[in-house]
Amino acid sequence: MAKRAPILEVKDLVAHYGTIKVLDGVSFDVQHGEILAVCGASGCGKSTLLKHVIGLLKPTSGTIHMWRRDIASLDEEQFNEIQTRFGVSFQSGGLFNSLSLYDNLAMVINEHKKYEPEITDAIIRSKLAMVGLEHAQHILPSELSGGMKKRAALARALALDPELVFFDEPSAGLDPITAAGLDELLLNLRRSLGLTVVVVTHELNSVHNVADRILMLDRGKAIFFGLQDEIEHSDNERLRQFFSRQADAAMTTRNVDVED
């Protein structure tokens, strides 16, 4: 798996919101066909990391390469081309609320590709069924439950057969059965299409089932990046705490940290 050049390579990413430093020198890479889980306590900068990697926010310093191209150096047209090669599902869904689920997918496909209408239709229906939403084709996102929105966002991220997908907490708000179904879908797509996945998740179960490697963030720093088994041998206190689900004795101190 590690033979080819990495699909995504992030080096020393530093990012600020205003004057507050949110990411502090994060480096990692993702190989073709790999599933990388990004973990970390709430508010540690996972979503922010994702938004920088997909080019929505500009980092203060550091570089991001996708398919060996520096995304900061791309012009709009080149970036658009790269954009069709990855799919994103945001933490709060990011669906267009005025369009039905079907039209949400149709809009993305028709914007980038010119398929025959029957083909587009088949792709949309099949993708919705993959996430278990075949009965909800013409429903507006505002009429869906939270978990259904998540799944719809996932279907939309997969609409264009991307090579790389980013999921921000796909299983938050889902029951264990549906969540396991989504994990299974990711694994299936990886096996069949060689899909590469970067998934932000708190679900230790799903980390365990799907992830090849794990990136663990803590207060904006990458405190661990490596294979699952290495975690057990790691001597990092926070890391073992996270993965053994120990209640956080440091919770109070951390909140004080955040505030000042």
Partner: peptide, 23 residues
């Protein structure tokens, strides 16, 4: 291999997903 898996995933999903009338 992979193609077989994807074809079966795609076609079984599509078979489940009947076109619904727009309201």
């Amino acid at each position: 291999g992979g193609p077989a898996q994807f074809i079966s995933l795609f076609s079984s999903s599509l078979a489940r997903s009947k076109p619904l009338p727009r309201p």
